[in-house]
Computed example of a mutant assay.
Amino acid sequence: MEHLVNPQVKSIAISGIRRFFQLASQVEDVVSLTIGQPDFPTPEHVKEAAKRAIDDNFTVYTANAGMPELRKAAADFVKEKYHLSYDPEKEVIVTVGATEAIDIAFRTLLSPGDEVLLPAPVYPGYEPLIRLCGARPVFIDTRPFRFKLTAEALERHLTGRTKCLVLSYPANPTGVSYSREELAAIARVIRGKNMFILADEIYSEIVYGGPHVSIGEILREQTVVINGLSKSHSMTGFRIGFLFAPEDLAKQMLKVHQYNVSCASSVSQRAAVEALTKGKDDPARMREEYKKRRDYVYKRLKEAGFETVLPDGAFYFFVKIPGNANSFDFCLNLVREHKVAVVPGSAFSPFGEGYFRLSYASSMDVLKEGLDRLAGAR
């Protein structure tokens, strides 16, 4: 019956991150620095809110776009933190994680033959969703610019078929982010063109050098902002994301969301209200600890002779592999011979080849042991 499968589905593959994580998990005594899973527990008061929702029998459908109080809390949060202004009734959708928000944005706005620009190396979750829409991903090599998209590189890749720029920052896998001036330069290239920006800002609360700036503040009318609680509040399993978009776009995306999932989990939505109100500053404590880890890992990598860019945010390093080793083979050897797991750079597009991604969303003890083993492989 395989001949009945949609060819677009057959053409995509399981994430290279997950494939390597599964491979490493089968090896005994491996220190895994692979998955972007915060090691902090969900804040206690947020968990209590979820428990109360169950005890109150709040286990029902909500409005398709999400509970009104949650949409308001989300709009208030991004206004206070990032100076974004969205109408909670008409321009905010609560989604099943940021991934569903990205999916419904693409499915609403992309048509077969459209081109989507992806500054690379890039998180592997975008390309399959683009291809499922019949659109074409176009990678922009950011390696010459310390993994940042420049306005000049963007302009060179625009064609008559360009429909979208995906701008994910702080970035997975590199951890780089953008200043207001850099974002303004990108916005000047796109302003007035028949295209939109999908701004994936899921790591916006994990920024070290200053407050996060959303390109939605600069180019609101052409930007769809994606965010969520997985990284900021260590709520990955709650699966709560947010989509912020101008009303004329949001009302169309709501149709796709409605027929896709009906609504996000009611219990998770109650927990999310708690996180965005009483817990709006919970990320600060985690961010301070991540910064300590970042500085420690950077020091250890440099001491071991590895070449990397100091991340502005998130919790990843993208590290140059010495010599000309294939990234998958290098990482496989790390697992088998040195009992430490990182992710091959090839998982993040062809422009990630020659690198590996290291996640520091682990305790200092785990990081120390993992880096000791990594240094032994140098």
Rank of each mutant, 00 (worst) to 15 (best):
P7R: 15
P7A: 13
Q8R: 15
V9E: 15
I12M: 10
F20L: 09
F21W: 15
V27P: 11
G36F: 03
P43W: 00
P43S: 08
P43H: 06
H45N: 13
V46M: 06
E48C: 08
A50L: 07
K51Y: 15
I54H: 11
D55H: 14
V60D: 10
Y61V: 06
Y61C: 10
A63M: 12
A65E: 07
A65M: 07
M67L: 13
E69M: 07
D76M: 00
D76I: 00
F77N: 01
K79E: 06
K81H: 10
P88F: 01
A98V: 07
A101E: 01
I104A: 00
A105T: 08
T108N: 06
L109Y: 03
D114W: 02
D114C: 05
V116S: 01
L118A: 05
A120C: 13
G125V: 02
C133I: 06
G134D: 05
P137M: 02
P137V: 02
V138Q: 11
V138G: 05
F139Q: 14
I140W: 02
D141M: 07
R146M: 14
T150F: 02
A153K: 15
L154D: 01
R156Q: 14
C164E: 05
L165I: 07
L165Q: 02
S168C: 13
V176A: 08
Y178N: 04
R188D: 14
R188T: 08
I190G: 00
I190H: 03
R191P: 06
I197Q: 00
A199G: 06
E201H: 12
Y208H: 14
G209N: 14
P211H: 12
R220P: 04
R220C: 06
I226K: 01
S230F: 03
S232N: 12
S232M: 06
A245P: 00
L249A: 13
M253V: 06
H257K: 15
V261T: 13
C263N: 13
A264F: 02
S268Q: 10
A271P: 02
E274F: 03
A275R: 04
M286D: 13
Y290V: 04
Y290M: 10
R293C: 04
K302Q: 11
G305M: 06
E307M: 12
A314V: 05
I321Q: 08
I321K: 08
A325E: 15
S327H: 05
F328M: 15
F328P: 09
L334Y: 02
V335L: 09
R336C: 08
A341P: 01
G354K: 01
G354C: 05
F356V: 04
G370T: 05
